[in-house]
Write a protein that binds this DNA or RNA. Sequence first.
DNA 1: GTCTATATCTTGATAGAC
DNA 2: GTCTATCAAGATATAGAC
Lengths: 211, 211
Amino acid sequence: MAELSEQKAGEEKRGRRSRKGETRRAEILTAAMRRFAEDGYQNAAIADIARDVGLSLPGLLHHFPTKVDLLLAILAKRDLDSADFIGLHGSDLRRLLKGMVAIFRRNADMIEVVRAFAILNAESLMKDHPAKAWFLDRATEMQDNFASTFERAVAEGSIDSGIDGKALAAELIAVMDGLQMLWLRDPDRFDMVGGLEAYVGRLLASLGLEG
Amino acid sequence: MAELSEQKAGEEKRGRRSRKGETRRAEILTAAMRRFAEDGYQNAAIADIARDVGLSLPGLLHHFPTKVDLLLAILAKRDLDSADFIGLHGSDLRRLLKGMVAIFRRNADMIEVVRAFAILNAESLMKDHPAKAWFLDRATEMQDNFASTFERAVAEGSIDSGIDGKALAAELIAVMDGLQMLWLRDPDRFDMVGGLEAYVGRLLASLGLEG
DNA sequence: GTCTATATCTTGATAGAC
DNA sequence: GTCTATCAAGATATAGAC
């Protein structure tokens, strides 16, 4: 939260002064994400990222003073790009689940981005990782959103009152994360979208919502 | 495969000469796993591992000449320890699924080991990671085992012939991996075992195998 | 089997010129 | 905004003594 507003303030300040500066920043972020997707954050060398965009290392550090700043900028950008998911917040259960399948379908064409965030997500489990808090917050928020959608469905009587919304929310996240990992390991042979579709279909059926 | 037999040959050779040498090796492997669980393979410093067992860095390198050797020894040990899972191979579907829950229950008391392998598993997605092949092989094998159990159940007529064994096998692995990740991020608040139990229960019910 | 000392490499970051 | 030059730290690995 604090990082996000700081970041936005920084962007505005620079944006006012130079349009080309913003382009550079965006180029760097794209290159960084690609490197993080291949080597993870800790193992990627910012000197390589600099060379990818035709800069020297100090040239890159002029835009992002430290490696951590670069990482946090990527996470902040992701927060802004997550508007599509936020749009699903408040939908009914069926719509939410179908929406997640749609997001997966779109993600299947953005393997670099998916890979970067899957790697960073796992990496953030490590001790003292600078993205630890961000991924924890994001996971908690997603879980709460899903849980409240399940619970709303119970309250409206559209699904059985015996179900555990929090547990199903966690399971859904687990399935999505797990399917992504399998897909990343073998993108050509594994059908991530079909996998989620099958799971969601069976889940809806078992909740009596299919037809 | 090649690494494993090489490793076993090495162990036999040393084992014949000194029993205390084997103890040292085991100590080092335990310490290494703990470090890898915290920092990952790439980020962990073997000098720290050496200090954990009261050795200097060259002292450790006498037992494992390179860092990669240390990693491969851990993976080879894991292969030997996986006997419990192999015992489930060939069981019927119901027994296999209940067996996986039992393994999860036992794993819930071994968080360091689970964390180490979850971290290494994710890390192995990275480019040129030395454990890449091992984790790919292991995932493929598990998937094949699960799939053939599902397919056997179909052949025996105990479940519907419309089901896709390979897809369900992948889904099961995804759920287990995903639940593990959620648990590792928040071990006190998240019930990994209960999560898998709920999933398996619903899966069996939807296949008409509960009661 | 274990140590001290050292070589070598890589990395993130700074100083200061242009 | 970008560069050259440089630094300081940390890592793996080796040499050689005990």
